[in-house]
Design a binder for these strands. Structure first.
Lengths: 342, 342
DNA sequence: AATTGGAATGAAATCGCTTTTTTAAGCAGC
DNA sequence: GCTGCTTAAAAAAGCGATTTCATTCCAATT
């Protein structure tokens, strides 16, 4: 065996004449602790460098029962909201020597479950999941076995650690703002009903109406998914309403929905805020550059990613379950030109 | 040991009274081939289900020398261009039972190298990388050892498999279009110089100028990174030029750069296409909805992701190196209102 | 002279799985 | 009664690490 071909500790042992244990200790930096002479250590380290030796992390993981890997499950990684979070989770993981498995649950609870299964088979040390949000049993079960943190969406009544933004507050504020500008017929185009984030936003919307003496009109709470199509069709419905009865303002619960709404308006030749005022959740790089700069509620995606990994790391490294409720980070309101005073 | 606590083959062996080999064979679906009686198999399968048994894929990977994992290295996952590709790579991988390690190289060749190292230690079966693009030696070395496919950026003179888009053609066409509309002073705001994609685009730009009898003016080839800042500052420079000498049209080599340009214009109170005509690389969901709907050259990101994984799978499963040059997929020109006829 | 103790390594078990090699039992054939 | 063939399953080796427990050598102590 030539030195340059040494791929494993065994190979290195054969070539250098020392045993696997000695080499393992040396390369793991605990040689001195085990009284391996400086001379021997130098020989081993030189040989390892020469051979461009790399540990097999799978074998280590097997032996150590710690793989230094985590999983991140998202509904749709092509959505820039999740991509931004992924970016910071990956970075944080990298800085702490963890590798990240990316799983796209494709907006399906079934795929989400399959992804969890996959990650467990791979013995990840922890999992961050942005759940679809309609079911939680499988997540509770998961939490019995593996460190877990939820991001963005969570389950208010279920004790699982989470990091998300406190969407209700600015939802309330922005709807109040619309009202103060003279709007009384305000539509809300929502995403997936009964998910935590949707609920918080809708609650803010309803409370603002109520506190200002406006009746909630269920016709004006529209839509059913965080998709462009949803916004597109809801906007068409709104356009089709009799002019006197239709809303003058729209509160859109996600940037993707907003794109659909805007597309619909563009096709119909309608202008913002001339024909409709718009407020949208989720600030994007382009929000200020659209035909009409949008008033938005921005979420701290980056911070959410960072914090989520930190919470996960706490669990992974302390081996204790966190029974804290989780973290609610503040959102940020960006006022722009998409609101008309009536 | 209780059945429900059985986590390993050994545990299952203890509980059922059969040996690990028999159980392994049964659960891997090759029991019959090894003449394990139907009765025994049923007992084993029932026990495994009852225990909710999951194979340890790390141990399997170690033994089989095949981990069913791949790595995907991108310069910046928060960039929606790469996120879209990631989405399809993940999907394709999932359908073929591979798990995906996501590595963000943070636009740094050093991190790219570290990521490769990490993936090799984890014994991935293959790697897809969108390289930073200035260095290729480490990739050539990698290709000696691991199946590899490059996406988006590649190295024209180096025989590594790649999938990318043929950006020169539409670059040429769109610049020609600008010229036909009367523009003769056309700036090009580029990304990272000497990367394949940048080169192709610039080449298209220069060729179009030349073929139309226009001299290439190096003052008009500006910028140095695929970032918003780059677009922002380049646009400021353009604005600062004496009005008679400054370009009337801008060819931006990425959507991120374009956002910077638009921000700059907005701040200066300049309008597209009134003050400047713009053409941008990379179609986005919002391209048609901006203050002025943009003329763009769209790349087939999804197809690139899919094809990249397919090419990788070919290598992983045939164990033969591909010495084909790679794939160049066509781009798509979307004409919109951001060009003024002079 | 025998024992002790520290320094420098080595041997062997183990992690959870797959696979090659063996074994054991039952029955047919001579 | 022995050989030889099936059938059914067990035993053991090995993947590449880590770690507990030994071993060897030699100087110092009793």
């Amino acid at each position: 065996m030539k030195l340059k071909e040494a791929k494993t500790l065994k190979d290195l042992a054969k070539v250098t004449g020392f045993t696997e244990s000695t080499i393992s200790r040396t390369l793991n930096g605990i040689g001195t602790k085990y009284r391996i002479s400086t001379e021997t250590q130098k020989k081993i380290i030189d040989a390892a460098n020469e051979a461009n030796f790399k540990f097999n992390e799978n074998a280590r993981g097997l032996r150590l029962k710690k793989t230094m890997t985590v999983g991140f499950i998202v509904p749709d990684i092509s959505n820039s909201f999740f991509a931004k979070m992924a970016s910071l989770i990956e970075r944080e993981a990298r800085l702490h020597k963890y590798a990240v498995f990316l799983c796209d649950s494709d907006n399906s609870t079934e795929v989400e479950k399959a992804s969890i299964n996959l990650l467990q088979k791979r013995k990840v040390d922890g999992i961050i999941v942005c759940p679809i949000g309609l079911e939680s049993k499988h997540l509770q079960k998961l939490y019995q076995e593996t460190p877990l943190v939820l991001v963005d969406r969570y389950f208010p009544k279920i004790p699982l650690p989470f990091v998300t933004s406190d969407d209700g507050l600015d939802s309330y504020k922005v709807v109040q703002h619309l009202i103060s500008k003279g709007h009384s017929k305000i539509a809300c185009i929502q995403g997936v009903e009964n998910t935590s984030q949707n609920n918080m936003r809708v609650k803010g919307y309803k409370n603002a109406l109520q506190d200002n003496g406006l009746a909630f009109d269920s016709k004006f709470l529209m839509g059913n998914s965080f998709s462009e199509k949803n916004g597109y069709y809801a906007a068409q419905q709104i356009i089709a309403m009799p002019k006197k009865k239709r809303p003058t303002a729209i509160f859109s619960l996600s940037s993707i929905i907003t794109l659909g709404i805007l597309k619909s308006f563009t096709e119909a030749g309608l202008k913002v805020p001339l024909d409709f005022s718009i407020v949208s959740f989720d600030e994007q790089e382009y929000s200020a550059l659209l035909a009409t700069p949008l008033t938005t509620i921005g979420q701290p995606k980056e911070e959410m990613g960072t914090k989520a990994f930190q919470l996960l790391r706490n669990q992974m490294e302390s081996k204790t379950k966190l029974h804290q409720e989780g973290m609610l980070l503040p959102t940020r309101l960006n006022f722009r030109d998409s609101i008309k005073a009536l």
